[in-house]
């Protein structure tokens, strides 16, 4: 049937040739975005195997060396800082830290929000009003301010910081899952399955979740770059990831002091932030068109 053939998942994958053909069919921007993100994930997973230098190894003879194409040597492709430490090595670890925080933050936001949305839709009544109020509150306050006050009150450590990032935009998922569950309960398949005698676990886990997954995934492509920006902003201000750990925002904040003499310290991580968020947004836009035409 024509309908079936148009579903990409049904097509059998015949090796690398088919994969290459499919990639060639993608828009240019999307392919670049995909490649960039694959590179970032590889770096995040295997950073310690790629480090040319330990990030604490300093070489006072090679202080503030410019990157390779701007008069520097191949030994330090992105130059060195004021203690002669390798910028490239530091960048790899920063990428891993920023992606790690964004990944877990997004995961927490999605899980928490979806669960609350399900709870609101399942129990209705007072619980739903409370959750809706919390959604309104979260949406009406800039999260940057909430995050800053929590950091002020609780102090900072990495697990707390990641958990805090997870509270960013949970309300988006709560809204989506509540709305779609209500719709499904009102007229559709969820009511039918419930009527068959299924318990909540089956209804939510096996029926509603798979049906709303594509919308949730598209929203995750919005949350992920937002958390990268938020984390790097806070780290830039010195209120996020704390030394000796390093993240992209940290590096920019630290490189800012050498902006006149060694702008590469700051420009390298800044470029990575922009390219990464840009890539995810591009990929997200593309995914949205493919997966979820109902979402604008």
């Amino acid at each position: 049937m024509a309908m079936r053939d148009s579903l990409p998942a049904v097509l059998p994958a015949t090796g690398i040739a088919a994969l290459a053909r499919r990639i060639a069919g993608l828009p240019l921007g999307v392919s670049f975005a995909g490649l960039w993100l694959v590179a970032m994930v590889v770096i995040a997973l295997g950073a310690e195997f790629m480090l040319p230098y330990s990030i604490t190894a300093f070489d006072l003879k090679a202080r503030l060396m410019p990157p390779v194409l701007f008069g520097g040597g191949i030994a330090h492709p992105l130059g060195t800082d004021e203690l002669g430490r390798d910028v490239f090595s530091r960048l790899l670890l920063s990428i891993r830290m920023s992606l790690l925080i964004a990944f877990f933050g997004t995961l927490i936001a999605t899980t928490l929000g979806t669960a609350l949305g399900f709870l609101a839709a399942h129990f209705r009544g007072r619980l739903e009003s409370v959750i809706l109020m919390a959604i309104d509150f979260q949406a009406s306050m800039p999260f940057m301010i909430i995050a800053l006050s929590v950091l002020a009150f609780f102090g900072n450590c990495l697990p707390l910081f990641i958990a805090l990032m997870g509270f960013h935009s949970w309300e988006r998922y709560a809204r989506i899952s509540r709305g779609l569950t209500l719709a499904a309960n009102e007229q559709g398949y969820a009511a039918a399955v419930r009527q068959l005698g299924a318990g909540p676990g089956r209804i939510y886990g096996l029926h509603i979740l798979p049906n709303i997954a594509s919308t949730l995934i598209v929203s995750m492509t919005l949350t992920f770059p937002e958390i990268i920006l938020l984390e790097s902003g806070l780290s830039f201000l010195g209120l996020g990831v704390q030394p000796p750990l390093t993240s992209l925002g940290n590096m920019v904040g630290y490189g800012r002091e050498y902006i006149t003499r060694a702008p590469w310290i700051m420009l390298a991580p800044a470029g990575v932030i922009v390219l990464t968020t840009l890539s995810i947004s591009l990929l997200g836009d593309w995914l949205r068109d493919r997966l979820d035409p109902t979402l604008r």
Partner: peptide, 22 residues
């Protein structure tokens, strides 16, 4: 109540809506 569903069932006006399209 869930157990009793075996004995009583419903047929809907909109069969497409009542089925999980995935």
């Amino acid at each position: 109540w869930r157990e009793l569903r075996r004995k009583m069932q419903m047929v809907y006006q909109d069969p497409l809506g009542a089925l999980d399209r995935r």
